[in-house]
Simulated assay, not measured.
Amino acid sequence: MTDSPYVFEVNQHNFASVVVENSQRAPVLVDFWADWCQPCKTLTPLLTKLAQEYRGGIILAKVNAETEQALAAHFQVRSLPTVMVVWQGQIVEQLVGVQPEAAYRALIDQLLAKPGDLILEQVETLWQQGRQKQAVELLGEALKQEPDSVELKIALAEKLLQLDRGEKARVLLQSLPAEDQGRQPASGLLARLQFSDLAQGAPDLATLEVQVRATPDDYAARRQLAARYVLAGDYEAALEQFMDILRRNPQFEEGAGRKGLIAMFEMLGNEDPLVITYRRRMFSLLH
């Protein structure tokens, strides 16, 4: 017996309530065991530990196959231990014998994966294939299904920023709870919005690169190029552009080079290796 709220002794009378009903909200691992089964004495404590660790993410239902022979026969259990996984009223997996702990964890984690996780994987695949429009549309549809998902809102805002759609990204990010806005990754994306503002109406990245190479002292174009690099995720290139502005013309636009560097430091966080390197370089240049 156990006092855990996540572990139950199951028989034919309470099987429906413990297993079937609970499976509507969490995967149920039905552990068929017996006193004479030596491997069972290894497996049952392991499953109990996992049930405790996942704290309600899974339910463990223990069935003594010797005393509950009707249940064991109904589910055609022919060897012990057998673990039957029931999810939303359906048997989705059956494991015979003792498996490595990692196998049970992998199965549980797969069942507990949020629908949004799969969506994000699909979005990244589309993005890498150059299908940005489809990626954004997929995130938009996912948000209609999960309108309160912080993860999906952040993912969509990040993609919108990369597509120069800063205002839509701003609306999404500002709709997040205050505590989420104040921590990464949302706080970093909010900081990136100022670079989105800088890039608004600017030429594309390739055009700006040509322009800056042709006219190194065009600091306005160089600052726009830095903003473009930020939005493209090339943070080192962006930092280098702001360093060049600071080196060549520290007074440009009331210290735009220094301000750009500081804004990027805030966006990336103090522990980022790039921040450590460029903060030291900025200090050396200023002093």
Rank of each mutant, 00 (worst) to 15 (best):
Q94V: 15
L29Y: 15
L161M: 10
H287I: 08
S23V: 11
G56P: 11
A73Y: 04
S23I: 10
E254Y: 04
L71M: 11
V92T: 13
R165M: 13
W36V: 11
G257I: 12
N64S: 08
T277G: 01
G188S: 12
P39G: 00
F8V: 02
I91F: 00
N249W: 07
T125R: 10
Q174T: 03
S196E: 10
D117N: 08
T125F: 02
Q110C: 04
N14H: 05
V7F: 03
N14Y: 05
I262R: 10
D35M: 07
L161D: 01
L43W: 08
A135R: 02
S79P: 09
A61G: 10
E21F: 05
L176D: 03
L120F: 03
Q211G: 06
A232H: 01
P100V: 05
A226F: 04
V77K: 09
E179V: 15
Q181M: 09
R170T: 09
L286H: 02
V275R: 06
H13D: 15
E236G: 05
S187F: 10
D109P: 05
M243A: 07
L126F: 07
Q194A: 13
D197H: 07
Q162H: 08
Q200N: 12
V20W: 08
K49C: 01
D117S: 13
A106K: 15
P100I: 03
M267L: 11
Q99P: 02
E141N: 10
A226H: 04
R279Q: 15
Q94R: 15
V123D: 04
V212G: 00
G56C: 06
Q88A: 01
N270Y: 05
Y219C: 03
